[in-house]
Design a protein around this nucleic acid. Sequence first.
DNA 1: CCTTTTGGTTCCATTATGTGAAACTTAGTC
DNA 2: GACTAAGTTTCACATAATGGAACCAAAAGG
Lengths: 261, 261
Amino acid sequence: MGSESNSDGTVGKALDVLDMVALAGRPVRFGELLAHSAYPKATLYRFLQTLTSQGMLQMDADRGTYTLGVRLVRLAHVAWAQSSLAPLARPYLDELAQETGQTIHLAQMDQGQVLYVDKRNAARPVDMFSSAGKVGPAYCTGVGKAMLAYVSDARLAAALDRQSFHRFTVNTLDTPAKLRAELRLIRERGHAFDREEHEPGIICVAVPIVSRAGRVLGAVSVTSTTALTTLDALEAQAGRVKDTAARIAVEAESWRFPEQD
Amino acid sequence: MGSESNSDGTVGKALDVLDMVALAGRPVRFGELLAHSAYPKATLYRFLQTLTSQGMLQMDADRGTYTLGVRLVRLAHVAWAQSSLAPLARPYLDELAQETGQTIHLAQMDQGQVLYVDKRNAARPVDMFSSAGKVGPAYCTGVGKAMLAYVSDARLAAALDRQSFHRFTVNTLDTPAKLRAELRLIRERGHAFDREEHEPGIICVAVPIVSRAGRVLGAVSVTSTTALTTLDALEAQAGRVKDTAARIAVEAESWRFPEQD
DNA sequence: CCTTTTGGTTCCATTATGTGAAACTTAGTC
DNA sequence: GACTAAGTTTCACATAATGGAACCAAAAGG
């Protein structure tokens, strides 16, 4: 848990602390944080004070525990609306969900990790906030690999450094070399698979969302289970997914550059 | 826009900048931010650099604009799950929505403002991230007044300082004195109304969620329009709303204090 | 009831870090 | 090709972060 990218100054360190609390995922005591943190008592203490007074953390005085503050929810509302693909991708995802009847994911890259920003569930109603915001590994998910296959060399290198290459299943690509080979294949065919690499029984086809300039904006995937379908059957949907991805890319482009020069 | 609570050091100032970008609600240029900010060029510039490198902001290099970063979405996911009432209130809200067939809001207090953390819409499917995270004024909404009526004097004073008392409609309580009188009435009857004080035609009954120790945790409301119903008819629901609020309070209590003493 | 330990908060001399005026570098105009 | 506006970098200076150590409160133990 401990060592983070405390490269940029005081602010970076404070945000590290924020991440530490987030990582715990439950109310944490000062002591627990201290044990995991690289900072000395007084320093950590001051950070917690500042963050709490700023509403980024919340402290339960009775129990002496800290949790993330509601100010984050407010900020994220704006973040989600303004710099995630979710709002503008919505109609296209709806359509894709309708057509395929499968579970759909929309993801973006966040510091080498896959961040899910929207989802359409096959059966049950969507549970938005609790699925949007979830993170997953990049090296062993369909959306992750789809994005990695198209990012710049510099970004790829940075991202690879952040992968754990933990072997979740027998199919997990557990070395950078294996992953790089896979990425080459993905570029050739234009879509990525998840062959039960993250969770047994879960398979998917994923397509990156790439801007005209070649920047990777995100990825869309159609997910299913080996119990319900086969990879080949899923691949038959690839064209449809590509179409969706392309349309989202166009939409994003015209949103981000409203007035043409 | 400009002057914020830059009380606590560098971190506070950096978060101010974050808020400035959030407040704009759209991609902003460096210059725009500079114009609104209290900080000199170089200082602001460095903050933007830091926040961007931290993933709290995102910068579109081509356009030279900044937006909130996706890291916030990740953090908010945890924040929402761990320190909002939404996850544990969910079943109760569902039930209330079912019973009343009306629009339901669940809100909490964030620095003197009302923060909506969940919602059930009468007709159309819920649009979670885009409704959760929304903020509104405390002095002229049902949930806001319900919460203010039960907070400690110190918190009330702090909150009142942060109210604009803008006169949205003819019914808006536009002075602290009027509001204080209203809060007294709310305490007497145990529930608050919104008599078209924020938006014409919109009325609601709201009930605070109060812990056994007397701490205000949030508020629930049932909303409708003057076209569809009357305040009296809505008041008939008050008992039901109180019941829901009470059950959420109990649930919250057993969540936050799992082991009884 | 006094002592010790644990967990949290405050102090304060040291110095690393943030600060911001000004100089500079583009990119866009006339 | 000189001029202007917008963004970026520099650097001497002072503020603000740092962290060891002292302090305090409340349990735990004798």
